[in-house]
Computed example of a mutant assay.
Amino acid sequence: MDGNDETERAATIGMIAETMRSTVTVARALVDAGVRIDLAGLEREIGDLCADAIALPRVLGRELIGPLTSLRDEIAALERTLMDAPPAD
């Protein structure tokens, strides 16, 4: 794989991380509104995303610290929201 392919792959991973962050933000808003959500597959998708980022050359992977940190922070906020949500019936 040449440098251009890896650069494009890094950009794609960054876009996916941002899309996932937005999805988790919506999930958190739904939980706040009392809507039940299904998180099946989220852990696998995030694991795949992280594995893809780790496979990049170090310099390109470092460029993803911001998007991946934002995703991590949003997941942590969702986790707190889920813990504070009333139990499901």
Rank of each mutant, 00 (worst) to 15 (best):
G61I: 03
I13C: 00
G66P: 15
S70L: 14
A51N: 13
M20D: 04
T81N: 01
D2C: 00
R62N: 06
A88V: 06
A11K: 01
L60G: 01
R21D: 00
L30D: 07
E45N: 11
V24Q: 11
A85Q: 00
L49E: 06
T23R: 12
A10W: 03
I16V: 10
A77F: 07
R58F: 13
A85M: 07
R80V: 08
M20R: 10
L49A: 00
V31P: 07
E79A: 13
G66K: 09
A77W: 03
R21L: 05
I75V: 02
S70A: 08
L56H: 11
P87H: 15
E43A: 12
L68Q: 04
R80D: 01
E6Q: 12
D89V: 11
P87F: 10
M83I: 08
A88R: 10
I13H: 02
L39D: 05
A51V: 15
L49R: 11
M83F: 05
L56Y: 12
T7L: 03
M83S: 14
G3M: 07
T81V: 13
L39A: 04
R28Q: 00
A29D: 03
T12S: 08
T25K: 08
R44W: 15
P86K: 14
P86D: 07
A17E: 03
S22K: 07
A10D: 10
G14C: 02
D5V: 09
L71N: 12
A29C: 02
L78N: 01
R36G: 02
E8W: 02
D2R: 00
G34L: 06
V31K: 07
I75H: 08
T81Y: 06
P87T: 05
V26L: 12
G47P: 12
D32N: 00
G61L: 03
G61C: 04
I46R: 05
I16W: 01
I46A: 03
E43H: 06
G34W: 12
A85V: 09
L78Q: 08
A10H: 00
L49N: 03
D89P: 14
A17D: 02
V35R: 02
E6L: 13
T7S: 08
E63R: 06
R28H: 10
G34V: 15
A53Y: 04
N4Q: 12
D38T: 15
T7P: 13
A11Y: 02
L30R: 14
L39M: 11
L68F: 10
M15F: 04
G41L: 14
R80P: 05
E18P: 09
I65F: 15
L78A: 03
A51C: 06
P87I: 09
A55Q: 01
E6R: 11
I65W: 12
T12G: 11
A40D: 13
C50K: 15
E18R: 08
A33S: 14
L71G: 09
D5W: 13
T12K: 12
D48W: 10
V24A: 14
T19M: 10
D52M: 02
T81S: 09
A33C: 10
L30F: 12
V35C: 05
E18M: 02
L78I: 02
I37W: 10
D38I: 11
P86L: 05
G41E: 15
D38P: 15
I46H: 05
I65S: 07
D5H: 04
A11V: 01
I37K: 05
M83K: 15
E43C: 08
L39N: 06
R36A: 09
A55G: 05
D38K: 14
P67E: 05
